[in-house]
């Protein structure tokens, strides 16, 4: 994903250590999406993706952080969100992005579904080091 300039004043960070923090991260992303002027449907898609990814950070990553900011690219405005953990990592990221793949008790829609809900998606994972998922949704 390209490095789009962020509005520094809009930057937020939420520690994800408990399930209440996933709710907080969702609310933070919702506020930024409203400020960036995303349509209601696009707000809903981004917040839903954030909910899936935040839960992964908590459950599979053992906790971590969510960062979010409003970003700009020429005439576009969007919301950038990054979830990072220092958990066990994902050995095969290709496989992890397949519908139905799960290492836990979920349905395996979290990662693959979240990718469909956003405009840009990046998954970086190193076994034993951690996982970072970055997503971006543009206002249209």
């Amino acid at each position: 994903m390209r490095n789009y300039p962020a509005d520094e004043a809009s930057r937020e960070e939420v520690a994800i250590q408990a399930s209440g923090d996933v709710v907080k991260a969702r609310q933070t992303v919702r506020l930024l999406a409203q400020q960036a002027g995303l349509s209601l449907v696009n707000q809903t898609k981004l917040v839903t993706a954030a909910s899936e990814l935040g839960r992964n950070t908590l459950i599979y990553g053992g906790g971590g952080t969510a960062q979010a900011a409003i970003v700009r690219d020429v005439a576009r405005v969007g919301v950038w969100v990054r979830f990072a953990d220092t958990g066990p990592g994902i050995p095969d990221t290709e496989l992890a992005l397949t519908d139905g793949w799960t290492s836990g008790s979920g349905m395996g829609l979290g990662l693959s579904g979240a990718r469909r809900l956003v405009d840009e998606f990046e998954l970086d994972s190193t076994p034993g080091v951690g996982t970072t998922v970055t997503v971006l949704k543009w206002a249209r």
Partner: peptide, 14 residues
């Protein structure tokens, strides 16, 4: 169910 929620759910794969 709100329309935006329905659209998102289906795209999510549910």
């Amino acid at each position: 169910m709100r329309p935006a929620v329905a659209m998102t759910l289906v795209e999510l794969g549910l």
